[in-house]
């Protein structure tokens, strides 16, 4: 067999379709016996524990990526230099296979929180760097010249003129990075850090109910993060830009 069989036509819904969602619901709220026997898995306490870990890892990696990428993007964008570097970083970043990165990091450097955060931050840096550069360098030069003419310092120009105008583009990069990081944090159990992805990956422990529960929880969490960042972007965008949009 060379190619995977494309399972067409789509099979009819299995009989237990709805009951599987019921099982997943029970898995989240009351837990069930592990498929491997003995211990109870799932239940709110484990769900909260794993979800907290996933959020923690995601926010840490996002913070590291922002701290490393944004100053470089601001500096290059303000000086209108290094376009090639900033843009190709974004393109190259997209080509990094997340699974290979996490697996190699775990196998070559070791498992653990710090290594995982570094690997995830690597995924977050390219979109933030590229979007910060593009956002800042696309600010109308006339506005920058006017600010300079009024006697603003270069740092003042970046802070008070370029940054506010570039917020939508920069936050677009932050949101892309956040989605990529939280998605990849789902496979963090491969690097020894248990996140909600453990429910998905360790099917032989949690069973189909656990897998489905994990998938639903991860999806909800990613959507919640995206919604929160959209709200942050809205709050950070200056009034003038919002008026301009409508």
């Amino acid at each position: 067999m060379v190619l995977p069989a494309l399972a067409l036509p789509v099979p009819a819904l299995p009989a237990g379709f709805l009951s599987l969602f019921g099982d997943a619901f029970n898995f989240v709220f009351s837990g069930q016996e592990a498929e491997t026997g003995g211990v109870t898995v799932g239940g709110t306490s484990q769900v909260v524990e794993l979800a907290t870990k996933q959020i923690e890892v995601t926010l840490l990696a996002l913070a590291v990526a922002i701290l490393l990428a944004m100053p470089v993007g601001l500096w290059l964008g303000h000086r209108q230099q290094g376009e090639f570097l900033a843009v190709s970083a974004g393109n190259a970043g997209r080509a990094i296979p997340e699974l290979a990165l996490i697996a190699l990091m775990a196998a070559a450097i070791g498992v653990g929180l710090v290594n995982l955060v570094v690997a995830l931050a690597i995924l977050g840096i390219p979109p933030i760097l590229t979007n910060t550069y593009v956002g800042i360098s696309q600010v109308d030069r006339a506005s920058v010249e006017a600010a300079r003419g009024m006697g603003m310092t270069e740092i003042g120009i970046v802070r008070k003129v370029e940054l506010p105008l570039a917020v939508p583009t920069i936050m677009g990069g932050v949101r892309t990075a956040a989605i990529n990081i939280i998605a990849t944090a789902t496979i963090a159990p491969l690097a020894g850090i248990l996140t909600l992805g453990d429910f998905i990956i360790a099917r032989n422990v949690y069973g189909d109910a656990g897998v489905l529960a994990g998938a639903v929880l991860v999806a909800l969490m990613a959507l919640a993060l995206e919604g929160t960042l959209a709200a942050v972007q809205w709050a950070m965008t200056s009034k003038g830009l919002k008026l301009n949009r409508s």
């Binding site: 989605i179 994990g214 998938a215």
Partner: peptide, 12 residues
Amino acid sequence: IPSISFFFLLLP
């Protein structure tokens, strides 16, 4: 929605 989660939402 992360792809890995999407896979298993489609599972049923």
